[in-house]
């Protein structure tokens, strides 16, 4: 059976042009195309989504993820947030990892270079989760490769 991968992109990622200094010429549709091609080569069924609505993103993560074997999420600003929504986000990811589903958080730019205060811990959910930041579109590619390898090991 084909493995199913859900890639989620959070608020603001639809238009990357306003973040030129971090992202260069990358567009979300180019990222989607690249992910589609990589998944095709690895025989993975891909569902690639983006939403500006944090509740919708949480819904994707909590409910829709049930139909998938693995999740890649670019949560944008969540890494430095401390909100009630963030707590729910963490719980959703923890739930997924407890089901032994690989989850990898990705960022296009290196979030530690964007003036992040490195003495303050990065906020991340509990549970086993991978993290890739700063490789541009290849943050997604490396995450897909890692997930493919992991799913094939388990199978």
């Amino acid at each position: 059976m084909k493995n199913k991968l859900l890639i989620l992109n959070g608020p603001g990622l639809a238009d990357l042009s306003i973040y030129d200094e971090f992202y260069g010429e990358i567009t979300l549709s180019a990222i989607k195309e690249k992910c589609k091609n990589v998944c095709k080569g690895l025989n993975i069924e891909l569902d690639f989504r983006q939403t500006d609505d944090e509740d919708e993103l949480l819904g994707f993560l909590l409910k829709d993820s049930e139909d998938f074997n693995a999740v890649i999420i670019n949560p944008v600003g969540y890494s430095h947030a401390l909100t009630a929504e963030f707590a729910k986000h963490c719980l959703a990811i923890k739930t997924l990892t407890l089901q032994k589903k690989p989850v990898i958080e990705v960022h296009i730019a290196n979030i530690f270079k964007q003036g992040a205060d490195i003495t303050k811990p990065l906020q991340v959910p509990e549970g086993q989760m991978g993290f890739v930041s700063g490789l541009g579109v290849y943050s997604y590619v490396i995450a897909i490769n890692a997930i493919s390898k992991k799913l094939n090991k388990v199978a």
């Binding site: 990898i104 290196n110 530690f112 270079k113 992040a116 490195i118 003495t119 303050k120 811990p121 990065l122 991340v124 959910p125 509990e126 549970g127 086993q128 989760m129 991978g130 993290f131 890739v132 930041s133 700063g134 490789l135 943050s139 490396i142 890692a146």
Partner: peptide, 23 residues
């Protein structure tokens, strides 16, 4: 970042182009 709090800061990441962890 998922482990003990004393591992949560990184002096390497701000000097690096990219970070890959947990794979």
């Amino acid at each position: 970042h998922l482990r003990e709090s004393f591992r949560h800061n990184t002096f390497v990441a701000p000097a690096a182009d990219a970070v890959v962890a947990g794979l």
